[in-house]
Design a protein around this nucleic acid. Structure first.
Lengths: 192, 192
DNA sequence: AAATTAATTTTATAAAAATAGAATTAAATA
DNA sequence: TATTTAATTCTATTTTTATAAAATTAATTT
């Protein structure tokens, strides 16, 4: 079970009113299934089901005693997760599996025609940024391109090459030198 | 929203894989609904629904920006709950509504003076019931008590022995026989 | 003003989870 | 050994929740 799954299991285990009550009761003392069922006014099989979920999350442990099963709260587990939530690296890690480029792909699919040309220049910033990020990959890092060459590259995608040149610089994907000078690609500064 | 309900809302808000991912993403930077939908590969209306749940739990906040809604993570809320989980009084409190005797104990603590006598007879039924339940334990089950003996017992606690006798019968803790006859304790019919 | 866009709300459906009765298992005692 | 008891597992049902399409709202741009 990976980290995220573990947290999800933990939250799911506690995301039920009766299970929260069970945790509350077990925080005071151990109880048998039968006792819990009487206290919560639900069936024993239902309590058993809840205890299974809590158990899978590591929140309770059963201790057999003749044919009773006394359940104990695993307080350490709760504290462990609470401390994890206070750790600033935990939450950002939850997004690790998310495909960071999904948004860009969607924008690109929307703005490029099947023949590979640009339908239009996006008016919205975050979409323009996605398009520029895509186009700028045609330029090698660390090489200078004369304006003429830049124009020829952009002309393959859209007639308004002047705007593309300007936006590339404006959004911080490229830099330019001098008046009619040359352009070069630079590292994108985080922002998205 | 009481304490328990608040915790339940919190756990329910985080008990979903996509919502955990949203929290993870927002822990890095704010995102619009549209961006989150693209990143998670689900519909915008679905994301909106998730954000409503997170919002109700106080975990995110929207910041309108033209017609975009940028959602921000409310990290303080998460930390606040995490700290609450580390507090040893939080979990036992979750069972407050359940513990059938907690109410009785509180009433008894309120109505009995340190010397063991009754401050007054409660006017509210459920408080009276708790007091009577406590007092009736002085009588053995299955034994008959003449009225004189009953009075002497009650007089230790309160001068109004007549009311106590009457209520014991009225609430179904005891039964009486004949005119000036005798009393005996009976099983309390579940009600609490 | 008309058209576009993002977000939400509404509505409907599909999926997941809670519940309890019945059947089963395991342990205790008569 | 047979019976009782507590717990679990199985099965069926109800309730809750996630999902998205369609309709609506609100703000922007043309």
């Amino acid at each position: 079970m990976d980290e995220n799954e573990e947290l999800l299991t933990f939250f799911k285990a506690l995301a039920d009113a009766n299970r929260l009550k069970i945790v509350g009761l077990l925080a005071r003392q151990p109880y048998s299934v039968e006792q819990l069922a009487a206290l919560l006014q639900v069936g024993a099989s239902t309590v058993s089901h809840h205890l299974t979920k809590l158990s899978e999350a590591g929140l309770v442990m059963a201790q057999a005693h003749s044919y009773y099963n006394y359940y104990h709260l695993q307080n350490e587990k709760i504290q462990q997760v609470a401390r994890k939530l206070l750790d600033s690296t935990t939450l950002p890690a939850l997004s690790a599996e998310v495909d960071a480029n999904a948004f860009d792909r969607k924008v690109i699919a929307n703005y490029f025609l099947p023949d590979g040309t640009l339908k239009a220049l996006p008016s919205q910033q975050k979409k323009m940024r996605a398009v520029l990020r895509h186009l700028v990959q045609r330029f090698e890092m660390g090489r200078k391109y004369p304006e003429k060459e830049v124009n020829e590259m952009f002309a393959q995608f859209h007639e308004d090459t002047a705007s593309l040149r300007r936006e590339m610089v404006g959004y911080g994907f490229m830099q330019r030198e001098g008046g009619g000078g040359c352009y070069w690609r630079i590292e994108e500064k985080e922002e998205r």
